Simulated scan of single mutants.
Amino acid sequence: MASAARRWIIGRGLLGEAVARSRSDTPFSVPVDWTDAERTKQTLSSALTDFLAPSGVHEIYWCAGKGVTSTPRERLQQEVAVFESFLAALGRTSAESDAVVVLFLSSSVGGAYGGAVGGPFTEHSPAAPASAYGEAKLDMERLASAYGEAHGWRTVIGRLTNLYGPGQDLSKGQGLISTLVNSAVTLQPATIYVSLDTLRDYIYEDDAAAVISASAARARQLGAGETVTKIIGTGRAVSVGAIIGELRRLRRRSGFSLVGQGAAVGQALDLRVRSEVWPDLDAVIGTNLPEGLDRVMRARLDLLTRG
């Protein structure tokens, strides 16, 4: 099990692309149409035979999903159904293969602890979802653990804090940091839906991917059917106001025009976390917030320069 693993990264957005470039090998890949749930299920199921054909260790990283705290429950449940369909197909296909399967599921700190109080939260803190988004994430965690136990996979559930980086589609204003950076660069008003003293842990895309890759490698040492849940974050929470202050310093401008401030449904005020599971793997996190903000800002400026 010490040999190089074959990888399949499902969902190639901000996180998936970062995981793909965290190692030098070329991951297995198939084009997936995410606009049609039934077609998505069929494509992923059909690709499993080719992916699992060679013997050895096979790592699957589920980084897919477009849901956020404001996404309607019906759409979130569609994502859960696609994931469960994939797990069922993986169970059928892996039963006919001698491949060792390591499954990584990207989950969410905000989803798991959105309704909790008394941070910092750890992997041993009781989950307390505050939205349909959080409930869907926990549903997926339970499915991953149950199918993994039934089929002997090694499973890692990664509860990620707030992910950010240049890999995000800045033109769409996705994510709080991307929204604030866009405002700092274009001088357009930023619309946010949480108070300025809201505390969040922000992790740079490549740092998160490095922890995820290290966790998948560590998971090979688990017993068949075992599941480990790990919080993936920096362990350092900052307020929205502090981010705004840092962006003002970087841009040497005083102004931020904010609209839409206020408590949003499913958004906790304090989401400080501390990982107590495999904490040694967190040593690969090396990007501090000022460095990360500067990279995101430079990417946005470059995007504007290129039109």
Rank of each mutant, 00 (worst) to 15 (best):
L76C: 03
Q77S: 06
Q78E: 15
Q78C: 11
E79M: 11
V82W: 02
V82L: 10
F83C: 07
F83D: 08
E84K: 11
F86N: 03
F86S: 04
F86P: 00
F86R: 04
A89R: 12
G91I: 01
R92E: 15
T93I: 13
T93S: 14
T93R: 15
S94P: 07
A95E: 14
A95V: 01
E96A: 14
S97Q: 11
D98E: 14
D98H: 13
A99S: 13
V100A: 15
V101R: 07
V101W: 07
V101P: 02
V102I: 14
L103R: 05
F104C: 03
F104W: 10
F104Q: 06
L105D: 04
S107W: 01
S107H: 01
V109C: 09
V109I: 08
A112S: 10
G114H: 03
A116Q: 03
V117Y: 12
G119P: 10
P120T: 09
P120N: 06
P120F: 08
F121G: 04
E123R: 06
H124N: 12
H124T: 11
H124K: 11
S125Q: 05
P126I: 04
P126T: 00
A127T: 12
A128M: 09
P129T: 00
A130V: 01
A130M: 09
S131Q: 08
S131F: 08
S131A: 14
S131E: 09
A132P: 07
E135H: 06
E135K: 04
A136Y: 04
K137L: 05
D139R: 11
D139L: 13
M140Q: 13
E141Y: 02
E141M: 05
R142C: 14
R142H: 14
R142M: 14
L143V: 00
A146C: 11
Y147V: 00
E149C: 12
E149K: 14
E149H: 11
A150Y: 10
G152M: 03
T155G: 05
V156S: 02
I157V: 13
I157Y: 02
G158N: 07
R159W: 02
L160Y: 10
L160P: 02
N162R: 06
